[in-house]
Design a protein around this nucleic acid. Structure first.
Lengths: 331, 331
DNA sequence: CTGAAAGCGCTTACAG
DNA sequence: CTGAAAGCGCTTACAG
């Protein structure tokens, strides 16, 4: 289990460790001969520089911390994947941290990551006190949810997406629309609610708002109650695709046919939507792009490039599929 | 950005760095007075020991590498979550690595992880040459897919689960059963196929096997062809729940009602199954337990405990829901 | 019980 | 162009 070190290479190549280090980092002057000898020695001894030693000196671990509520929530895997792809192609590695939106876990992880000299953190949370982040010294990017004006954030056009969704239901003939809103206090959920309300109010459409917490079971139950109590509801805009799946399940149980008798539009654009029958009309967020952009912005900060702005709002897109009546750009 | 070090603490407490280190690690003798002084100093200076320096000396980073094909595949998030939970509660942190089953990426990651002194690796792959792993020095656990006899693996009872699935379809009255098999060469897919074949052959049931690669779109297409060509197929056993969703979609498009006209059973037990309408009858793997066990076994190896065996096979469970006709233990 | 010293494996001013 | 030295922040034999 003896690992070869830079000194072994130096000895083999008849130079000093400093010289080996210089060729390793392509930094500083090294003569052709020395370089060749070192390269040969590295190959011969199958030398791999020790990343930890480098980190100790450089204070950069080339690791990114990814802190999110729960990777099991189908919105996050794609985000994580995007981040990891960008990280990999830039020589970074990502540490996965699930918090269940528990502030204690969030803080614990941030401490642990700092101790490990992560170069930066990508954070999906809403309840973290910004004061804890300020003295962090390590760059942070907020994803999906805005934390504060000081922290760069990548989100999607939640309010506008909600407007488009609501107008789509109206265009499809809905007269009484329910909105299953997401968790209270979550900026993205609030924005979607605001978008919904602005349209129904402006157009004078009968409507009702209930909470479903982005949760399948809860959404199924809530929809059940809702449709029993207000049988004339003919359109539902849910704040997530998971929620939409719950609503569809309830409608199915109650024998309401979709989209003839009840139309539904979701929000997110996760793969689930395509797998439902009928497939789900939804407002698609550019999830992968959001993750990739977040990672790129973080890496830009490592390189001390200043960002253009602290708020990146990516456009959403209406994807019409089978749960609403109108034909759209996608099947 | 001046971080306080062990020497700052030592100076403040009027002791040596060695003494501080001893109280930090609760190791070696320290007088009551010294200990108190150090504890006070640590608090006062808000000292956090530098994990990287510790790692350099101890050669243990308290990190676990998790190498898997694609976190975007809904089977993996739950596995990853379980691993992270166990890691967290044992003071470990997990590095996420997506490989797309690309051998080059796998090797690249393994090298990178070694350089970072990860304590161990949890690996979901089938194509990796074991010879590359042998000289690793770091403990490995294979998950979901068996790699070799030398590497401890945690899998589920794939063959038995497939037997139960097939028998269930027969019990429900199916006379002509199709099996949408998973990728060729994947041990778990092969085992499921074997289980299917043993039952249909033994019971003399008409059957057909086609490949669907655990892929939704491919499954939908394949099922479409299949049902058109063999309209008398009345049962489908798919090798994954995603595949089942594809089959259901095709059936829906063709106007075949489930379960009256066509029965379907999946494999995996991912949350998707509950969201489909009708909800999917499936063979549930204990995904979370598999991940948790894998992580626990890995940590056991760090502590130099030898494992009881190199193959942990966890039981699967038939969960009867709405895509087959028989009433089961779950709704 | 405690401190000085050496070392984990690398990097980078500093002299030459 | 190159090497000796100091240092990144910790830990642990070794003396005392």
């Amino acid at each position: 289990m003896k690992v070869t070190t830079i000194r072994d290479v130096a000895k083999y190549a008849n130079v000093s460790a400093a010289t080996v280090s210089r060729v390793l980092n392509k930094k500083g002057y090294v003569s052709k001969e020395a370089e060749e000898a070192v390269v040969k020695a590295i190959e011969k001894l199958n030398f791999q520089p020790n990343a930890v030693a480098r980190t100790l000196y450089s204070k950069s671990s080339r690791m990114i911390g990814l802190i999110l509520p729960d990777i099991t929530n189908p919105y996050f895997p794609e985000l994580a994947r995007a981040i990891e792809d960008v990280a990999l192609s830039n020589g970074y590695t990502v540490v996965l941290c699930n918090t269940d939106d528990d502030e204690k876990k969030e803080k614990q992880y941030i401490e642990a990551l700092k101790q490990k000299y992560v170069d930066g953190i990508i954070l999906v949370t809403n309840q973290l006190d910004v004061t804890d982040l300020a003295p962090m010294a390590v760059p942070i990017i907020a994803l999906d949810r805005i934390l504060s004006e000081d922290i760069p954030a990548v989100v999607s056009e939640n309010e506008n997406g909600a407007i488009v969704a609501t107008e789509h239901l109206i265009d499809c003939g809905c007269k009484f629309i329910a909105h299953l809103r997401g968790p209270i206090g979550l900026t993205s959920a609030e924005d979607r609610l605001r978008g919904f309300q602005s349209v129904v109010q402006q157009k004078g459409i009968a409507n009702i708002v209930v909470n479903s917490d982005f949760n399948f079971e809860k959404s199924e139950e809530v929809t059940m109650q809702l449709l029993k109590k207000y049988p004339t509801i003919d359109g539902i805009f849910t704040s997530s695709d998971i929620t939409a799946a719950g609503a569809m399940k309830a409608a199915h149980t109650l024998g309401r046919t979709i989209p003839d008798n009840l139309q539904i539009i979701g929000f997110d654009g996760i793969p689930l939507g395509k797998m439902l029958a009928p497939s789900l009309t939804t407002i698609e967020q550019p999830i992968y792009e959001m993750g990739a952009l977040g990672a790129r912005l973080l890496i830009q900060q490592f390189e001390n490039k200043t960002l253009d702005t602290n708020l990146y709002k990516l456009p959403t897109k209406l994807v019409v599929r089978g749960t609403t009546k109108m034909r759209g750009e996608k099947a």
